[in-house]
Design a protein around this nucleic acid. Structure first.
Lengths: 334, 334
DNA sequence: AACATGGTTGACAGCGCTGTCAAATTCTAA
DNA sequence: TTAGAATTTGACAGCGCTGTCAACCATGTT
């Protein structure tokens, strides 16, 4: 079955194809009568313009490429939500690709997006393959790296110091007087690794031992994993006074597992999470956490991209630190 | 800055453009020597093929359109995860658009996807505007409606009876001997509405009163909302013996709020959620729920689409009921 | 030596649309 | 009434790639 084209509409409406194109793109520049005739024809035929052709002809795609490691994590869902909110309303398409936490897949994702001739790329993370970096630079378009702060940004960079956040969480526990402080994590992606580094640094400074509880098999963080990891540690007799979890899900799991095993939070054991997920304030005891600004990260990234496209120029390298906030709640109260 | 094209690569490699195209698409049909020369040229120039041009010329897009109401809800994240898993590995692009629970935006999303000439559309839900329906039918491509069962599927339909699931959850509470059973929900989208209908039906059959607790302002479900709604009900003296929440997040919030208010679950009040989110089994008391099959829904939808595209024919109308499962846990134990 | 065979490479045209600029039409003002 | 401006419409070419088919080449066969 042949698809309906501009020409078909033009024939039916008795005008030239270019007029139809104009009616659809800048209705203001066309007389009332024609506009109505053309719209009638469009509706009658169920015409839908072919984006590929229009992109090719105009060499504008009105598309922004976004790369995230996974769609599975609320953090990125919130971030994408914000990106969408800004970009869609500005008339852009958002093309989301996930790299499944792999730098090779990320490289493929970048190639795919460049092949689509996206007008800008917003990418979570600052660690890329050499080729990825090169492609992003050569492409000569606005690029935003998010969630972390880079020593050497490709272009724009909006994020926070994951290491300092990890350090801050750990200092909070140290300040409460604990010595046996464990770090509990699932898969160590770059960001979790940086938080771990921060933990490390704080513990070293205070001359305390590292107590990691790291999932052996790579698994994304979840409440169930938090339970399992704590249970395993508990059964080994490895019970810390306090735990810093890389993620509120893990923290919730650990907290529930404590309860099952007759340990009270925070009386017997203190727990702090990360990200201040939606439930952290509601659970009981309420969960201390480090609040991160996913939504703002997404919004700001999108806004900077729009500004750059508006100016029709690749922006200068620039870094924005959105910071984080320590929220001390019941789970680490004295 | 001019972008690198096939011709540039061809010139550098000293072959014709068509040969370059062939090297990139079917390397098998080209001699070793040329292949190497061409690849060298591609790398040297950092050439990335223009997808728009290739789509236009070949009239194949290798793209599947996916519409979900929101990216914010884990349910859809898991579903998208499954879709991606299958489709990406089969060499397709996945274009995700969200309708923000609006039928008008859904209509726009459909137009956008058709304009992209996607080869199939996978859409969450069975309620569409008349024009949406018409467009989907006219487009003459595989369409999968998911998450609900339709009386009149557009093409393929993979889902479950939301109403029957709501009915089942309510019957479970009735069987435990409760009479004052509340239904707690945030925004009533179509699926939540159907679950509500199921609740309604069960209550009517058992000759019991409806006790709805419905968020006044449209808000997506969250733990915080669950707390708030329960708190509000409690303060009105409207305390049921059991609660059916449309969503595990609400259930968790309600459960925490009970604890804060000195009500024990399940001794004083029973709670059942919906979806069996990851944390339901881990929290304490563990949360009864209706397990739904998001992951399988996504996988199956993707697989059916692939099969249809393989066969190069729009499949016949077909409905698959993936069912659900009642998981009776501690939060509703006797 | 002449021919058929299979495997490689290339020429041509066109996918459906839009940028540019020219032509046609309408309107304004002298 | 008519030149000139302003508005509206259209012709042309080309965006970058691929389907089709023809041309070419090295081999092996008679």
């Amino acid at each position: 079955m042949r698809r309906i084209t501009l020409d078909d509409v033009a024939n039916l409406a008795g005008v030239s194809p270019i007029t139809v194109s104009r009616v659809l793109r800048k209705p203001g520049a066309v007389s009332e009568g024609l506009r109505l005739r053309v719209h009638a024809a469009v509706n009658e035929l169920g015409y839908v313009p072919n984006v590929a052709a229009s992109r090719l002809a105009s060499s504008r795609t009105h598309t922004i490429g976004v790369i995230v490691p996974t769609l599975y994590n609320v953090i990125f869902a919130e971030y994408l939500f914000a990106l969408h909110e800004v970009l869609i309303d500005a008339g852009f398409q958002v093309l989301v690709v996930n790299s499944r936490y792999s730098e090779i897949e990320e490289e493929n994702a970048i190639k795919a997006l460049l092949g689509q001739r996206v007008e800008a790329i917003i990418i979570a993370g600052i660690h890329h393959t050499a080729l990825s970096r090169q492609l992003l630079i050569q492409a000569n378009l606005p690029v935003v790296e998010t969630f972390e702060l880079s020593d050497d940004p490709i272009n724009l960079n909006i994020g926070m110091s994951q290491e300092h956040a990890g350090y801050t969480a750990t200092r909070h526990l140290i300040a409460r007087g604990f010595r046996r402080i464990a770090f509990l994590t699932g898969n160590l992606d770059h960001r979790a690794q940086s938080r771990f580094d921060g933990y490390h640094k704080a513990m070293r400074e205070a001359d305390m031992p590292n107590l990691e509880i790291i999932a052996q098999k790579p698994r994304h963080s979840s409440v169930a994993l938090g339970s399992e990891l704590f249970a395993a540690a508990h059964e080994c007799g490895n019970v810390p006074e306090a735990i810093f979890c890389t993620d509120d899900n893990l923290a919730l799991g650990a907290m529930q597992e404590c309860r099952k095993r007759g340990l009270r939070v925070p009386d017997d054991i203190s727990i702090i999470g990360f990200h201040d997920l939606e439930f952290a304030a509601c659970v009981s005891p309420s969960l201390s956490s480090i609040a991160t600004r996913r939504y703002e990260t997404g919004r700001l990234a999108a806004e900077k991209v729009l500004a750059a496209l508006e100016a029709a120029a690749k922006p200068n390298t620039e870094q924005t630190d959105l910071g984080f906030e320590l929220l001390a709640r019941e789970s680490t109260s004295a």
